[in-house]
Design a binder for these strands. Sequence first.
DNA 1: ACATTAAGTGATT
DNA 2: AATCACTTAATGT
Length: 213
Amino acid sequence: MLEIENNLHANFGYLFEDELIAEIQEVGVHKTIKKDQAIMEIGSYIKFMPLLLDGAIKILREDKNGDELVLYYLEKGDTCAMTLSCCLGETKSKIRAIAETDVNLIMVPKEKMSDWLGKYSSWQAFILGSYHNRVDELLEAVDTIAFLKMDERLFKYLKDKAMVNHNDVISITHQEISEDLHTSRVVISRLLKKLENDEKIQLFRNSIKVLEL
DNA sequence: ACATTAAGTGATT
DNA sequence: AATCACTTAATGT
């Protein structure tokens, strides 16, 4: 429990007043989620708002055929923007969230969200700020998909992944990458080979090392 | 030794 | 950039 308290202070202390931190501790539930576990599914209602303490979360969009597309990652100190709009509007989630790494987070009941908006200016700033950040990241994702060619998208994907994992060696198969980027395995294999020839990455079985960060 | 899975490649659209 | 068809290489049983 002490650990969680320290964690809260470390990640959100510079943002929130002590009273707010205390309230979060009171009503929030600490949760640990293992790598690859789903945190939020498309169509599900949201009852809690997550505050990320540790780890990274992958945010995906999915089409009717079940094909996925990675939008962006959440890291410590972030919260999920989808939750914000869902909680306020009582709508279903339109995205899917999967734990990229083992994740530590605090679930805050959604009722508290609006309570705190009036009560704490730091909370208001945080909510507005993270909403702003998410919109930015979403626009970046749109740019990436619309304007970058597949090879650039792929390299960006690898760099982002290395970043959130704090590790330049990524454990993944070509097949899995192709699913995240919504393309085929053959295309990924070929582009990866090109990137390796350009000495931007090194290829191994089941893993890739990113050289240029 | 055999089966399975991951990755590399040429050809076609 | 997608798909097919095939090969090669690594790994599991």
